[in-house]
Amino acid sequence: MNDASDLFVLYVAAVVVPLMFQSWRVAILGLGAQGILLGSILASHHHPWSGQLVFEYAYLFAIRGIVLPWYFFRRQRDHTGESEFVLIRKNLFQWLIAASLVLVSFMFGSRLSPNNPAEAWQVGTAASALLIGMLILSHRSGPLGQIVGLFTIEGGIALIELLSPHAMPFPVAIGVSIVFVLLMLTCGLYLGQLPADTLATELAATEDKGVL
């Protein structure tokens, strides 16, 4: 194991550990930890210093690592709607599914990049984040749970983006980070406005009544 693979192990931990706690605070902290780790993984690539690199660090460490958890923490504290918060149901079967997803992700990573162990680690970690994010989303556990799932998927995508040896053009990088910030703010709008119960069931119940 080298430094980079340590970071990937920590990243998987930041994704998986919140599943074991019924606490929205831990879930939000997990998102912040993922942001910090993304910045650290970028730093481990030793790119030459440039204005764009500084911007990328600011985006990953400050926005993803600090502002995002702070913002959702405040929004959730102001609207304490989700007293019984769960990302996935707390039982052995669900944890087994989560563990299987992580295992499959790393098998997938090693198959996709058989000759490049570092890349295989990164792909495995990103795939874990994507699949665990999808697992959280599929539980429809309320707005905050879905936000955690969504940003876990976003983190996985950002990890794959970091695989690229060349940075995006600077205007594009700025655009991507603006989208991220606006997505965060828009998601925050819904917190407290939607009840914590399942979203799909009630819509299905009203869909054929023909009234609004």
Binding site: L137, P143, L150, C187, Y190, L194, L199, A200, L203, L212
Partner: peptide
């Protein structure tokens, strides 16, 4: 209901 639909759309 519309808020839920909007959220679903966003997700």
């Amino acid at each position: 209901d519309a808020k839920r639909a909007s959220w679903k759309y966003l997700m």
